[in-house]
Design a protein around this nucleic acid. Structure first.
Lengths: 189, 189
DNA sequence: TGTATTCTACCTTTTAGTAGGTAAAGAGTC
DNA sequence: GACTCTTTACCTACTAAAAGGTAGAATACA
Protein backbone atom coordinates (compact mmCIF):
# COMPACT_ATOMS: atom_id res chain seq x y z
CA UNK A 1 0.00 0.00 0.00
CA UNK A 2 2.89 2.39 0.65
CA UNK A 3 5.32 1.63 -2.18
CA UNK A 4 2.34 0.96 -4.45
CA UNK A 5 1.56 4.63 -4.64
CA UNK A 6 5.08 5.50 -5.66
CA UNK A 7 5.23 3.09 -8.59
CA UNK A 8 1.73 3.95 -9.75
CA UNK A 9 2.58 7.65 -9.66
CA UNK A 10 5.82 6.98 -11.48
CA UNK A 11 3.91 5.14 -14.19
CA UNK A 12 1.44 8.02 -14.48
CA UNK A 13 4.25 10.59 -14.66
CA UNK A 14 6.00 8.66 -17.39
CA UNK A 15 2.80 7.95 -19.30
CA UNK A 16 1.77 11.60 -19.15
CA UNK A 17 5.12 12.67 -20.55
CA UNK A 18 4.73 10.18 -23.37
CA UNK A 19 1.16 11.24 -24.17
CA UNK A 20 2.23 14.87 -24.32
CA UNK A 21 5.12 13.99 -26.58
CA UNK A 22 3.81 11.33 -28.96
CA UNK A 23 0.08 11.01 -28.25
CA UNK A 24 -1.87 8.19 -26.66
CA UNK A 25 -1.40 5.84 -29.61
CA UNK A 26 2.26 6.67 -30.05
CA UNK A 27 3.62 4.63 -27.14
CA UNK A 28 3.19 1.22 -25.53
CA UNK A 29 3.53 -0.27 -22.07
CA UNK A 30 7.00 -1.38 -23.16
CA UNK A 31 8.07 2.27 -23.52
CA UNK A 32 6.89 3.14 -20.02
CA UNK A 33 8.45 -0.03 -18.57
CA UNK A 34 11.82 0.68 -20.15
CA UNK A 35 11.87 4.29 -18.98
CA UNK A 36 11.32 3.42 -15.34
CA UNK A 37 13.10 0.06 -15.30
CA UNK A 38 10.24 -2.32 -14.57
CA UNK A 39 8.40 -5.00 -16.58
CA UNK A 40 5.23 -4.43 -18.58
CA UNK A 41 3.42 -6.95 -16.38
CA UNK A 42 3.97 -4.63 -13.41
CA UNK A 43 2.20 -1.83 -15.25
CA UNK A 44 -0.70 -4.16 -15.99
CA UNK A 45 -0.86 -4.85 -12.26
CA UNK A 46 -1.53 -1.17 -11.51
CA UNK A 47 -3.45 -0.36 -14.69
CA UNK A 48 -4.96 -3.58 -16.13
CA UNK A 49 -5.31 -2.06 -19.59
CA UNK A 50 -4.42 1.08 -21.45
CA UNK A 51 -7.88 2.58 -21.02
CA UNK A 52 -7.51 2.39 -17.24
CA UNK A 53 -4.31 4.32 -17.66
CA UNK A 54 -6.06 6.98 -19.77
CA UNK A 55 -8.77 7.38 -17.16
CA UNK A 56 -6.29 7.65 -14.32
CA UNK A 57 -4.29 10.23 -16.26
CA UNK A 58 -7.21 12.54 -16.97
CA UNK A 59 -8.57 12.14 -13.42
CA UNK A 60 -5.24 13.13 -11.90
CA UNK A 61 -4.87 15.98 -14.40
CA UNK A 62 -8.27 17.31 -13.41
CA UNK A 63 -7.44 17.16 -9.69
CA UNK A 64 -4.19 19.01 -10.24
CA UNK A 65 -5.94 21.68 -12.29
CA UNK A 66 -8.52 22.32 -9.59
CA UNK A 67 -5.68 22.71 -7.07
CA UNK A 68 -3.84 25.14 -9.34
CA UNK A 69 -6.77 27.48 -9.89
CA UNK A 70 -7.54 27.38 -6.18
CA UNK A 71 -3.97 28.50 -5.59
CA UNK A 72 -4.34 31.34 -8.11
CA UNK A 73 -7.59 32.44 -6.49
CA UNK A 74 -6.01 32.44 -3.06
CA UNK A 75 -2.89 34.36 -4.09
CA UNK A 76 -4.29 37.21 -6.12
CA UNK A 77 -7.50 39.20 -6.44
CA UNK A 78 -6.48 41.05 -9.61
CA UNK A 79 -8.42 39.42 -12.43
CA UNK A 80 -5.97 40.27 -15.18
CA UNK A 81 -3.22 38.70 -13.08
CA UNK A 82 -5.39 35.63 -12.67
CA UNK A 83 -5.68 35.24 -16.44
CA UNK A 84 -1.95 35.83 -16.78
CA UNK A 85 -1.18 33.10 -14.29
CA UNK A 86 -3.75 30.81 -15.86
CA UNK A 87 -2.03 31.19 -19.20
CA UNK A 88 1.31 30.37 -17.64
CA UNK A 89 0.01 26.86 -16.94
CA UNK A 90 -0.30 26.40 -20.69
CA UNK A 91 3.16 27.78 -21.40
CA UNK A 92 4.99 25.07 -19.43
CA UNK A 93 4.77 22.26 -22.04
CA UNK A 94 5.66 24.73 -24.79
CA UNK A 95 9.28 24.91 -23.60
CA UNK A 96 9.77 21.23 -24.44
CA UNK A 97 7.66 21.55 -27.61
CA UNK A 98 4.95 19.41 -26.12
CA UNK A 99 1.26 20.14 -25.72
CA UNK A 100 -0.79 19.69 -22.60
CA UNK A 101 -2.42 16.35 -21.86
CA UNK A 102 -5.92 17.56 -22.68
CA UNK A 103 -5.00 18.71 -26.20
CA UNK A 104 -3.35 15.39 -26.98
CA UNK A 105 -6.24 13.36 -25.60
CA UNK A 106 -8.67 15.53 -27.58
CA UNK A 107 -6.82 14.58 -30.74
CA UNK A 108 -6.83 10.89 -29.88
CA UNK A 109 -10.42 11.00 -28.68
CA UNK A 110 -11.86 8.68 -31.33
CA UNK A 111 -9.71 5.80 -30.09
CA UNK A 112 -10.58 6.31 -26.41
CA UNK A 113 -13.62 5.29 -24.38
CA UNK A 114 -16.70 7.36 -23.75
CA UNK A 115 -15.71 7.67 -20.10
CA UNK A 116 -12.44 9.37 -21.01
CA UNK A 117 -14.30 11.71 -23.37
CA UNK A 118 -16.68 12.67 -20.57
CA UNK A 119 -13.85 13.33 -18.12
CA UNK A 120 -12.06 15.40 -20.72
CA UNK A 121 -15.21 17.43 -21.39
CA UNK A 122 -15.56 17.93 -17.63
CA UNK A 123 -11.98 19.19 -17.52
CA UNK A 124 -12.68 21.74 -20.25
CA UNK A 125 -15.88 22.80 -18.52
CA UNK A 126 -13.91 23.43 -15.32
CA UNK A 127 -11.50 25.58 -17.33
CA UNK A 128 -14.24 27.52 -19.08
CA UNK A 129 -16.35 28.20 -15.98
CA UNK A 130 -13.38 29.51 -14.06
CA UNK A 131 -12.15 31.76 -16.88
CA UNK A 132 -15.69 32.96 -17.50
CA UNK A 133 -16.14 33.92 -13.84
CA UNK A 134 -12.82 35.77 -13.76
CA UNK A 135 -13.69 37.63 -16.97
CA UNK A 136 -17.14 38.60 -15.73
CA UNK A 137 -15.82 39.79 -12.39
CA UNK A 138 -13.00 41.71 -14.08
CA UNK A 139 -15.38 43.47 -16.41
CA UNK A 140 -17.85 44.40 -13.70
CA UNK A 141 -15.01 45.79 -11.58
CA UNK A 142 -13.82 47.80 -14.58
CA UNK A 143 -10.28 46.56 -15.19
CA UNK A 144 -11.03 44.08 -17.94
CA UNK A 145 -12.73 44.78 -21.25
CA UNK A 146 -13.99 42.59 -24.05
CA UNK A 147 -16.82 42.41 -26.58
CA UNK A 148 -19.64 39.86 -26.35
CA UNK A 149 -20.42 37.35 -23.61
CA UNK A 150 -17.89 36.16 -21.05
CA UNK A 151 -18.72 32.63 -22.19
CA UNK A 152 -17.70 33.28 -25.80
CA UNK A 153 -14.60 35.13 -24.63
CA UNK A 154 -13.58 32.29 -22.33
CA UNK A 155 -13.97 29.85 -25.22
CA UNK A 156 -11.79 32.05 -27.41
CA UNK A 157 -9.06 32.28 -24.78
CA UNK A 158 -8.97 28.55 -24.04
CA UNK A 159 -8.93 27.53 -27.69
CA UNK A 160 -6.25 30.02 -28.71
CA UNK A 161 -4.02 28.66 -25.96
CA UNK A 162 -4.59 25.12 -27.18
CA UNK A 163 -3.89 26.05 -30.77
CA UNK A 164 -0.92 28.15 -29.69
CA UNK A 165 0.72 25.08 -28.19
CA UNK A 166 0.31 23.15 -31.43
CA UNK A 167 1.65 26.03 -33.48
CA UNK A 168 4.68 26.58 -31.23
CA UNK A 169 5.49 22.87 -31.43
CA UNK A 170 5.19 22.76 -35.22
CA UNK A 171 7.42 25.81 -35.67
CA UNK A 172 9.62 24.73 -32.76
CA UNK A 173 9.33 28.32 -31.65
CA UNK A 174 8.05 29.22 -28.19
CA UNK A 175 7.71 32.85 -29.28
CA UNK A 176 4.66 31.94 -31.34
CA UNK A 177 2.95 30.94 -28.11
CA UNK A 178 4.12 34.06 -26.29
CA UNK A 179 2.89 36.32 -29.08
CA UNK A 180 -0.59 34.86 -28.79
CA UNK A 181 -0.59 34.95 -24.99
CA UNK A 182 0.43 38.60 -24.99
CA UNK A 183 -2.22 39.33 -27.60
CA UNK A 184 -4.86 37.87 -25.30
CA UNK A 185 -3.69 40.01 -22.37
CA UNK A 186 -3.42 43.24 -24.35
CA UNK A 187 -6.89 42.71 -25.85
CA UNK A 188 -8.35 42.43 -22.34
CA UNK A 189 -6.65 45.49 -20.83
CA UNK B 1 -0.29 5.57 -65.25
CA UNK B 2 -3.95 6.57 -65.60
CA UNK B 3 -5.64 4.21 -63.15
CA UNK B 4 -2.65 4.67 -60.86
CA UNK B 5 -3.74 8.18 -60.13
CA UNK B 6 -7.24 7.07 -59.22
CA UNK B 7 -6.09 4.41 -56.74
CA UNK B 8 -3.44 6.68 -55.27
CA UNK B 9 -6.02 9.43 -54.81
CA UNK B 10 -8.45 6.95 -53.27
CA UNK B 11 -5.77 5.86 -50.83
CA UNK B 12 -5.04 9.50 -49.95
CA UNK B 13 -8.73 10.27 -49.47
CA UNK B 14 -9.19 7.30 -47.17
CA UNK B 15 -5.99 7.95 -45.27
CA UNK B 16 -6.90 11.60 -44.77
CA UNK B 17 -10.27 10.64 -43.36
CA UNK B 18 -8.59 8.22 -40.98
CA UNK B 19 -5.97 10.75 -39.85
CA UNK B 20 -8.69 13.30 -39.15
CA UNK B 21 -10.67 10.75 -37.19
CA UNK B 22 -8.12 8.73 -35.24
CA UNK B 23 -4.75 10.42 -35.82
CA UNK B 24 -1.74 9.22 -37.77
CA UNK B 25 -0.87 6.49 -35.26
CA UNK B 26 -4.44 5.33 -34.86
CA UNK B 27 -4.74 3.39 -38.13
CA UNK B 28 -2.74 0.98 -40.26
CA UNK B 29 -2.45 0.12 -43.94
CA UNK B 30 -4.87 -2.73 -43.20
CA UNK B 31 -7.58 -0.20 -42.29
CA UNK B 32 -7.14 1.70 -45.54
CA UNK B 33 -7.01 -1.51 -47.56
CA UNK B 34 -10.21 -2.84 -46.03
CA UNK B 35 -12.08 0.42 -46.58
CA UNK B 36 -11.34 0.56 -50.30
CA UNK B 37 -11.25 -3.17 -51.00
CA UNK B 38 -7.62 -3.71 -51.97
CA UNK B 39 -4.62 -5.44 -50.36
CA UNK B 40 -2.06 -3.71 -48.15
CA UNK B 41 0.70 -4.59 -50.61
CA UNK B 42 -1.03 -2.39 -53.20
CA UNK B 43 -0.81 0.57 -50.86
CA UNK B 44 2.90 -0.12 -50.38
CA UNK B 45 3.25 0.01 -54.17
CA UNK B 46 1.97 3.61 -54.25
CA UNK B 47 3.37 4.70 -50.87
CA UNK B 48 6.31 2.42 -49.93
CA UNK B 49 6.04 3.34 -46.26
CA UNK B 50 3.78 5.28 -43.95
CA UNK B 51 6.04 8.32 -43.96
CA UNK B 52 5.66 8.61 -47.72
CA UNK B 53 1.93 8.64 -47.15
CA UNK B 54 2.23 11.40 -44.55
CA UNK B 55 4.29 13.52 -46.93
CA UNK B 56 1.87 13.00 -49.79
CA UNK B 57 -1.06 13.90 -47.55
CA UNK B 58 0.38 17.19 -46.35
CA UNK B 59 1.60 18.10 -49.85
CA UNK B 60 -1.84 17.57 -51.33
CA UNK B 61 -3.45 19.40 -48.42
CA UNK B 62 -1.20 22.38 -49.02
CA UNK B 63 -2.01 22.44 -52.76
CA UNK B 64 -5.72 22.33 -52.06
CA UNK B 65 -5.43 25.14 -49.50
CA UNK B 66 -3.61 27.40 -51.96
CA UNK B 67 -6.37 26.75 -54.50
CA UNK B 68 -9.09 27.54 -51.94
CA UNK B 69 -7.67 30.90 -50.88
CA UNK B 70 -7.10 31.79 -54.53
CA UNK B 71 -10.80 31.10 -55.07
CA UNK B 72 -11.75 33.28 -52.12
CA UNK B 73 -9.54 36.09 -53.38
CA UNK B 74 -11.06 35.88 -56.83
CA UNK B 75 -14.66 35.81 -55.66
CA UNK B 76 -14.77 38.61 -53.11
CA UNK B 77 -12.94 41.83 -52.32
CA UNK B 78 -14.59 42.39 -48.93
CA UNK B 79 -11.98 41.47 -46.34
CA UNK B 80 -14.44 40.55 -43.59
CA UNK B 81 -16.14 38.21 -46.06
CA UNK B 82 -12.76 36.70 -46.86
CA UNK B 83 -12.17 35.90 -43.20
CA UNK B 84 -15.68 34.52 -42.94
CA UNK B 85 -15.11 32.22 -45.89
CA UNK B 86 -11.69 31.25 -44.59
CA UNK B 87 -13.23 30.17 -41.31
CA UNK B 88 -15.80 28.10 -43.15
CA UNK B 89 -12.97 25.84 -44.35
CA UNK B 90 -12.32 24.98 -40.71
CA UNK B 91 -15.96 24.34 -39.93
CA UNK B 92 -16.32 21.45 -42.41
CA UNK B 93 -14.62 18.73 -40.29
CA UNK B 94 -16.51 19.95 -37.22
CA UNK B 95 -19.79 18.50 -38.51
CA UNK B 96 -18.36 14.99 -38.32
CA UNK B 97 -16.56 15.78 -35.05
CA UNK B 98 -13.21 15.55 -36.74
CA UNK B 99 -10.38 18.05 -36.86
CA UNK B 100 -8.50 19.19 -39.91
CA UNK B 101 -5.47 17.27 -41.12
CA UNK B 102 -3.00 19.90 -39.95
CA UNK B 103 -4.20 19.84 -36.34
CA UNK B 104 -3.97 16.05 -36.19
CA UNK B 105 -0.52 15.98 -37.77
CA UNK B 106 0.60 18.70 -35.34
CA UNK B 107 -0.38 16.45 -32.47
CA UNK B 108 1.39 13.43 -33.93
CA UNK B 109 4.41 15.50 -34.93
CA UNK B 110 6.92 13.78 -32.64
CA UNK B 111 6.41 10.47 -34.43
CA UNK B 112 6.76 11.94 -37.92
CA UNK B 113 9.82 12.90 -39.95
CA UNK B 114 11.46 16.29 -40.09
CA UNK B 115 10.29 16.67 -43.69
CA UNK B 116 6.64 16.37 -42.65
CA UNK B 117 7.20 18.90 -39.86
CA UNK B 118 8.67 21.35 -42.36
CA UNK B 119 5.80 20.94 -44.79
CA UNK B 120 3.32 21.39 -41.95
CA UNK B 121 5.10 24.55 -40.83
CA UNK B 122 4.99 25.78 -44.43
CA UNK B 123 1.25 25.11 -44.50
CA UNK B 124 0.72 27.17 -41.36
CA UNK B 125 2.92 29.94 -42.75
CA UNK B 126 0.75 30.04 -45.89
CA UNK B 127 -2.32 30.37 -43.66
CA UNK B 128 -0.80 33.07 -41.49
CA UNK B 129 0.57 35.20 -44.33
CA UNK B 130 -2.74 35.17 -46.15
CA UNK B 131 -4.80 36.03 -43.05
CA UNK B 132 -2.29 38.69 -42.09
CA UNK B 133 -2.52 40.32 -45.51
CA UNK B 134 -6.32 40.29 -45.44
CA UNK B 135 -6.34 41.80 -41.94
CA UNK B 136 -3.87 44.52 -42.85
CA UNK B 137 -5.74 45.43 -45.99
CA UNK B 138 -9.06 45.42 -44.15
CA UNK B 139 -7.75 47.71 -41.44
CA UNK B 140 -6.16 50.16 -43.84
CA UNK B 141 -9.39 50.31 -45.83
CA UNK B 142 -11.27 50.96 -42.60
CA UNK B 143 -13.75 48.06 -42.39
CA UNK B 144 -11.77 45.85 -40.03
CA UNK B 145 -10.49 46.76 -36.59
CA UNK B 146 -8.21 45.04 -34.12
CA UNK B 147 -5.54 45.85 -31.55
CA UNK B 148 -1.83 45.10 -32.07
CA UNK B 149 -0.07 43.76 -35.14
CA UNK B 150 -1.80 41.93 -37.97
CA UNK B 151 0.72 39.14 -37.40
CA UNK B 152 -0.35 38.60 -33.78
CA UNK B 153 -4.00 38.85 -34.76
CA UNK B 154 -3.59 36.29 -37.54
CA UNK B 155 -1.94 33.92 -35.08
CA UNK B 156 -4.81 34.36 -32.65
CA UNK B 157 -7.42 33.65 -35.32
CA UNK B 158 -5.69 30.55 -36.67
CA UNK B 159 -5.07 29.05 -33.25
CA UNK B 160 -8.57 29.69 -31.94
CA UNK B 161 -9.98 27.88 -34.97
CA UNK B 162 -7.68 24.93 -34.34
CA UNK B 163 -8.59 24.80 -30.67
CA UNK B 164 -12.26 25.31 -31.52
CA UNK B 165 -12.24 22.12 -33.59
CA UNK B 166 -10.78 20.14 -30.69
CA UNK B 167 -13.28 21.60 -28.25
CA UNK B 168 -16.27 20.95 -30.51
CA UNK B 169 -15.15 17.35 -30.96
CA UNK B 170 -14.65 16.78 -27.23
CA UNK B 171 -18.07 18.21 -26.37
CA UNK B 172 -19.58 16.69 -29.51
CA UNK B 173 -21.16 20.08 -30.02
CA UNK B 174 -20.64 22.05 -33.21
CA UNK B 175 -22.08 25.15 -31.52
CA UNK B 176 -18.88 25.54 -29.51
CA UNK B 177 -17.07 26.05 -32.79
CA UNK B 178 -19.68 28.45 -34.12
CA UNK B 179 -19.61 30.51 -30.93
CA UNK B 180 -15.88 31.02 -31.31
CA UNK B 181 -16.08 31.73 -35.05
CA UNK B 182 -18.78 34.36 -34.49
CA UNK B 183 -16.70 35.85 -31.68
CA UNK B 184 -13.78 36.28 -34.07
CA UNK B 185 -15.97 38.02 -36.66
CA UNK B 186 -17.71 40.33 -34.19
CA UNK B 187 -14.37 41.32 -32.65
CA UNK B 188 -13.10 42.39 -36.07
CA UNK B 189 -16.15 44.41 -37.16
C1' DT C 1 5.81 -7.28 -75.92
C1' DG C 2 6.72 -4.66 -72.18
C1' DT C 3 5.43 -1.96 -68.39
C1' DA C 4 2.24 -0.70 -64.75
C1' DT C 5 -0.51 -2.39 -61.17
C1' DT C 6 -2.24 -5.61 -58.06
C1' DC C 7 -2.12 -9.87 -55.92
C1' DT C 8 -0.67 -14.07 -52.73
C1' DA C 9 2.27 -15.52 -49.46
C1' DC C 10 5.47 -14.67 -46.50
C1' DC C 11 8.30 -12.39 -42.55
C1' DT C 12 9.77 -9.82 -38.30
C1' DT C 13 8.72 -6.99 -34.65
C1' DT C 14 5.66 -4.82 -31.64
C1' DT C 15 1.54 -4.59 -28.98
C1' DA C 16 -1.52 -5.70 -25.45
C1' DG C 17 -2.47 -8.87 -22.46
C1' DT C 18 -2.65 -13.47 -19.47
C1' DA C 19 -1.03 -17.19 -16.32
C1' DG C 20 1.17 -18.31 -12.74
C1' DG C 21 5.10 -17.98 -9.55
C1' DT C 22 7.83 -15.55 -5.75
C1' DA C 23 9.66 -12.50 -2.20
C1' DA C 24 8.48 -9.44 1.31
C1' DA C 25 5.46 -7.24 4.53
C1' DG C 26 1.52 -7.41 8.00
C1' DA C 27 -2.03 -9.46 10.76
C1' DG C 28 -3.70 -12.96 13.79
C1' DT C 29 -2.80 -16.81 16.73
C1' DC C 30 -0.55 -19.80 20.09
C1' DG D 1 8.71 -14.53 19.82
C1' DA D 2 7.95 -18.06 16.49
C1' DC D 3 4.03 -19.88 13.47
C1' DT D 4 0.98 -19.51 9.82
C1' DC D 5 -1.98 -16.98 6.45
C1' DT D 6 -2.99 -13.33 3.38
C1' DT D 7 -2.06 -9.51 0.68
C1' DT D 8 0.88 -6.62 -2.09
C1' DA D 9 3.90 -5.83 -5.68
C1' DC D 10 6.64 -7.44 -8.72
C1' DC D 11 8.58 -10.97 -11.73
C1' DT D 12 9.27 -14.71 -15.84
C1' DA D 13 7.26 -16.78 -19.55
C1' DC D 14 4.01 -17.10 -22.68
C1' DT D 15 0.19 -15.91 -26.24
C1' DA D 16 -2.65 -14.07 -30.14
C1' DA D 17 -3.15 -10.55 -32.98
C1' DA D 18 -1.73 -6.59 -35.52
C1' DA D 19 1.61 -3.55 -37.74
C1' DG D 20 4.74 -2.68 -41.26
C1' DG D 21 6.96 -4.44 -44.86
C1' DT D 22 9.21 -7.67 -48.75
C1' DA D 23 9.52 -11.05 -52.78
C1' DG D 24 7.91 -12.55 -56.50
C1' DA D 25 3.99 -14.31 -59.28
C1' DA D 26 -0.23 -12.98 -61.89
C1' DT D 27 -2.84 -9.84 -64.46
C1' DA D 28 -4.24 -5.68 -67.02
C1' DC D 29 -3.29 -2.32 -70.20
C1' DA D 30 -1.09 0.18 -74.18
Amino acid sequence: MNNNKNTAELILDTAQGLVQEVGFNGFSYAHIAEKIGIRTASIHYHFPNKEDLAEALIARYNREFVAKIAEIDSETTNNLDKIRRYMMIFSIPVDTYCTCLSVMLSSDLATLTEKVREKLAAFFTANLTWVERVLEQGRSEGHLQFKGTAQAQAHKILTSLQGAQLLARTFRDANRFNMIAEGVISALS
